[in-house]
Simulated assay, not measured.
Amino acid sequence: MLTCAIIDDDEINRLTLEHYIELSPNLQLEVSLADGIAGLAYFREGHKVDVLFLDIEMPHLSGLDLLRVLTDPPEVIITTGRQDFAVDAFELRVTDYLVKPFEFGRFTQAVERVQSRRATSPAPAAADGPANTDLFVKVNSRMVRINFDDVLYVEALSDYVNIVTAKQKHIVYTTLKALEARLSTFPNFIRVHRSYLLNTQHIESIEDNTANLRGGHFVPIGKSYQDGFYKGLQRI
């Protein structure tokens, strides 16, 4: 779940972004503001978000000037009606640059780019104590906490995934590719098939390129994934 902020003086664009965020099960809107001054105050009060959707041309303080004064900005997706600020924006290391009006598909691509960048960023140093393996997923209208150590496997179902534990299943509106990126910090999860992510902790045996899991579950190991899978096994 990525927390989001919107800073844009265009009310219609703010409403559009709010609607797109509401449609995205992996996004949570924290604040929607109408000018850069309010945005600067919000961040200086100590608030933090994962993604900032930021307009450039705003009165009093432009989006680019706001970025220049923030000491620790989040991932930034520019939303503007002008194409000629792109060079300046990317010099400030924004994640993506959306030119208004943009469709939901293009919005989703920008969010996926944020997820990809976060997945490949160096992980912070681990604190003392056990690692947190819980994630919240959106199931229908509820946010459900899942301990991914308990997950046996994840199966792709078109635009959804089926997250399977020994006790229950959760149908979640996301793609397998997006969830794989989100689980990149969970070393026990590996892609073993175009339609399956597998938690190797729960493998009891492997026979005929099929992983037999605890509780009588079976996951196929796709031909193109077999070399990498078997090389990664600790075996005698």
Rank of each mutant, 00 (worst) to 15 (best):
P122A: 01
E75P: 02
T210V: 11
Q226L: 13
V139N: 08
R68V: 06
F53E: 06
Y196M: 05
Q115Y: 00
F229T: 07
D227R: 14
H19N: 13
A127L: 12
D10G: 10
N162M: 14
V114Y: 06
I203R: 06
E204T: 11
L213F: 13
T133N: 15
L176V: 02
L40Q: 08
R93M: 07
N26V: 01
F136L: 06
V137P: 01
N132W: 09
T3D: 01
R106P: 00
G36N: 07
V49K: 00
P187F: 12
I236N: 15
I203G: 01
A119N: 01
G232W: 03
K177T: 10
Q168D: 05
G232I: 04
P122L: 01
T165Y: 08
F102K: 02
V161E: 03
L157R: 12
N26I: 00
N209G: 02
A5R: 10
A38C: 01
T120F: 13
N162T: 09
F186Y: 15
L233Q: 09
D227N: 04
Y20F: 04
L157N: 08
I163Q: 12
F90L: 08
L27I: 01
I203A: 03
E207G: 00
V192G: 10
V94I: 09
V114W: 13
H202D: 00
T120K: 14
L23R: 02
I37C: 14
A119V: 00
I171C: 02
R214M: 14
F107C: 04
R191T: 10
F136T: 03
T80V: 12
R214V: 14
V99G: 10
G232Y: 05
M58E: 12
P124K: 06
Y230I: 09
T165E: 11
H202F: 08
L29P: 02
I6D: 05
R113Y: 02
N162F: 07
T95S: 08
P130E: 07
H47D: 09
K177N: 06
Q234A: 13
D96N: 09
I190L: 15
A126N: 06
I163G: 03
H193I: 04
T3P: 00
P73K: 13
I203N: 04
L54N: 10
D8T: 14
T71W: 07
P25H: 08
R142E: 09
S224I: 05
I190H: 14
A38Y: 08
T133E: 14
A131I: 03
L66W: 13
D208L: 00
V172D: 08
H60A: 09
A123N: 01
Q201G: 03
I171V: 12
F104R: 11
A41Q: 03
T133S: 11
R118S: 00
Y230K: 15
R235L: 15
Q168N: 13
S184K: 04
R118K: 15
L54I: 11
G228Q: 12
V154W: 14
I236L: 14
N26R: 02
S184A: 15
Q83T: 15
D88E: 15
V172C: 03
V139L: 12
I171W: 03
L17T: 05
E207P: 02
L2F: 05
L40H: 06
V99E: 07
D9V: 14
T210I: 07
N188G: 01
P124H: 12
D50N: 14
